[in-house]
Computed example of a mutant assay.
Amino acid sequence: MALEVRGVIAPGKDEPVRVETIVVPDPGPGEAVVRVRTCGVCHTDLHYKQGGISDDYPFLLGHEAAGVVELVGEGVTEVAPGDFVILNWRAVCGRCRACLRGRPQYCFSTHNARQRMTLKDGTELSPALGIGAFAEATLVAAGQCTKVDPEASPAAAGLLGCGVMAGIGSAINTGGVGRGDSVAVIGCGGVGGAAVLGSRLAGAARIIAVDIDERKLATARQLGATHTVNSAQTDAVDAIRELTGGFGADVVIDAVGRPETYRQAFYARDLAGTVVLVGVPTPEMRIELPLLDVFGRGGALKSSWYGDCLPSRDFPMLVDLYRQGRLDLDAFVSETIALDGIEAAFDRMHAGDVLRSVVVL
């Protein structure tokens, strides 16, 4: 029997979000219904609201979530009712050329639930990143559920579902940060802060946090940055070079995703160093670099999509580190709010007042 729950929708471009009654169907084959316990407020949800991702309104927002499996459909074996799970937006297929080559973190055929959730009048909803977790319950593909230690704080664990995993993964998985490396992170919001934390976890010797907001730089120091640079006051490239003996950092992570920050990352890395783009650009952005510099500096220019994570591998491991006190996920939870507080949370996020507002249900 279908569930009727409260959920937050974006009805149209730049229109205020509102709480509506959402109809969640019984799970079909390969699907699961999850009772949402927490969901972080992410920039991606704001992009959906603003029309920056698609115009398939109305959207059911929310995707950075943890909850408990309530029902599963036919053929589901990976999770069962009662399991505490983190939701992810990349259920791997196991059959595409990436999966068959043993690289499921790059799966080229990820999928979501086939059925649509609706409003009471039957209007179909587009769930953000195939999740739609600003709701008391949501329908997902079973492969989007990753079972983790139920003793973990849902507010903290759920953040691994998107931004924190993207940042940690950009350092460890994509950037390959290792013991003794120097790392610079440009942009120290939620994703950049997580990249700092991931670099510390990987054993980097020098972690340089770059931002224009002293509040974010202070948080980056708490998360493990050894040095900070306010790029509104000094040239970021010069500062990073000065802090690395004149050479540049081994790995530079652009967690902003703008042409000017990418250029900073490119020139702030050492010869044969690595640039990682994890900040999400908008479609109109362009960058121009001298091809000779691309050739002459060597190294690697990489993009990190979801931190190149494999949820089934990475989520349980990171939750275990959190439970051991070795990974401070709680530091990212700036505040907890109710479903009707999301519009105001977007404003605080845009102003840089929070790392993450987390909806608690």
Rank of each mutant, 00 (worst) to 15 (best):
P58S: 13
P58H: 05
P58D: 12
L60Q: 11
L61K: 07
L61Q: 10
G62V: 07
G62K: 01
G62M: 07
G62W: 08
H63D: 00
H63R: 14
H63A: 07
E64M: 03
E64G: 13
A65P: 05
A65G: 05
A66D: 02
A66P: 09
G67N: 02
V68I: 15
V68D: 13
V68R: 06
V69Q: 05
V69T: 08
V69I: 15
E70S: 08
L71Q: 12
L71E: 06
V72S: 04
V72T: 15
E74C: 01
E74D: 12
E74N: 03
G75E: 10
V76L: 06
T77F: 01
T77Y: 02
E78M: 04
E78G: 11
V79D: 01
V79N: 00
V79G: 04
A80C: 15
A80G: 00
A80P: 05
P81D: 04
P81F: 12
P81Y: 05
G82R: 10
G82A: 06
G82K: 11
D83T: 01
D83Y: 01
D83E: 07
F84W: 02
V85P: 03
V85Y: 11
I86A: 03
I86G: 04
L87V: 07
N88G: 14
R90I: 06
R90K: 08
V92C: 11
V92W: 01
V92A: 00
V92P: 00
C93F: 10
G94I: 09
R95V: 13
R95H: 14
C96M: 03
C96H: 07
R97T: 04
R97A: 00
R97Y: 11
R97Q: 09
A98F: 13
A98N: 12
A98C: 06
C99H: 02
C99Q: 05
C99M: 10
R101Q: 12
R101M: 10
R101H: 13
R101T: 09
G102A: 12
G102F: 14
R103C: 12
P104E: 06
P104Q: 09
P104M: 06
P104L: 00
Q105C: 09
Q105V: 15
F108K: 09
F108V: 11
F108W: 01
F108S: 05
S109E: 14
S109Q: 09
T110S: 11
T110C: 04
H111G: 02
H111V: 05
H111Y: 15
N112L: 09
N112H: 10
A113S: 09
A113V: 03
A113W: 04
R114E: 12
R114S: 02
R114I: 04
Q115G: 07
Q115L: 11
Q115S: 15
R116M: 13
M117E: 08
